[in-house]
């Protein structure tokens, strides 16, 4: 799959912040003049990312949209639940429709004029890779000519509640929206991605890397343990970690991959790279990126 465009938005939010969260509207109005009403932050993250990745470029008629989120529209779902369980009221109609998985995609397809395949997929910390796999399947089998892949997860206020949901103690939270516009492989130069692979543990991963090596460099979307470092160092050259102090962001791996693709596209690096991610306690996801 050839990368024809990319965009990533990553906000770090202090765990004791009381709001407001960084404004997303300016990122949307850059491409769409009039304000879009009735959309929540989760939908804004989707639209802001998607519009900035496409950046007004004409899209193939058969462009599929593959959306990834680990947690979905948490903030609005929480509001609906407060209404039904705490206040003894019906959920507001607008809250209810915005809790649905594909409402975000609805707004984006409307803005981009897409009428083909749209999916919302999730796979814990490898949700972005899951969306990439679905895009790869459809591109590979000739069902779409281009695939717009986007992953987004929000931070909900109050942050104390959100930290409890995530089951973590940390001083910083991350939210964002990460996008790649992919086309079927073309002979021309550029950055291209292979299909993602999944591995249950470091042994399986090590075996696969030994058959795929050499890589010019490996980027991990997590802070590797000493064991992981030695495993990776023995098989390849340079190792770099793309991490944040607190990467508790469901589609953080999307941020890592977009960054990798952009470094390759800008000529900061070249050759054959490995994008490597894992959940909090495995499994691993791995994807070969070449330029």
């Amino acid at each position: 799959m050839k990368v024809s465009s990319s965009y990533s938005l990553l906000h770090t939010i202090d765990a004791d912040a009381e709001g407001p969260l960084p404004a997303l509207e300016p990122l949307i109005t850059r491409w769409h003049g009039s304000r879009i009403r009735r959309i929540d932050r989760y939908i804004q993250l989707c639209i802001a990312g998607g519009l900035n990745c496409v950046a007004d470029k004409p899209l193939e008629e058969r462009t599929g949209l593959y959306l990834a989120s680990r947690a979905g529209a948490v903030s609005t779902s929480a509001k609906a639940m407060i209404n039904t369980e705490q206040k003894g009221e019906m959920p507001k109609p607008l809250h209810f429709v915005n809790t649905l998985g594909n409402s975000a995609g609805f707004y984006l397809t409307q803005l981009l004029g897409l009428t083909g395949t749209v999916l919302v997929v999730s796979q814990e910390w490898l949700s972005f890779e899951s969306a990439l796999l679905h895009a790869w399947l459809d591109l590979h089998q000739g069902r779409v000519d281009a695939a717009l892949v986007g992953g987004f997860d929000e931070v909900c206020l109050p942050t104390a509640h959100h930290l409890e949901r995530l089951g973590e103690q940390t001083t910083q939270l991350t939210e964002g929206s990460h996008w790649l516009l992919l086309e079927r492989e073309a002979p021309a130069s550029g950055v291209s991605l292979e299909a993602p692979n999944w591995f249950a543990d470091s042994q399986e991963l090590a075996h696969w890397i030994s058959t795929e090596a050499p890589f010019d460099w490996i980027q991990t979307g997590f802070g590797p343990s000493p064991d992981e470092r030695s495993l990776l160092a023995s098989n390849t050259g340079e190792l770099q970690a793309f991490t944040r102090p607190a990467a508790l962001h469901g589609v953080f791996s999307g941020a890592a991959l977009v960054s990798l693709c952009e470094q390759l596209a800008e000529g900061q690096k070249s050759g054959r790279a490995l994008h490597l991610v894992r959940g909090t306690e495995g499994p691993y996801g791995a994807l070969v990126v070449t330029c």
């Binding site: 947690a71 979905g72 929480a78 509001k79 705490q86 899951s130 509640h161 409890e164 949901r165």
Partner: peptide, 22 residues
């Protein structure tokens, strides 16, 4: 809600569409 009251209780406490499949 019964245990900690309206302000402390966390609505939508389980997140992660993929948890069940995992």
């Amino acid at each position: 809600l019964a245990r900690r009251g309206n302000d402390q209780a966390v609505p939508m406490p389980i997140v992660g569409y993929g948890k069940l499949a995992q």
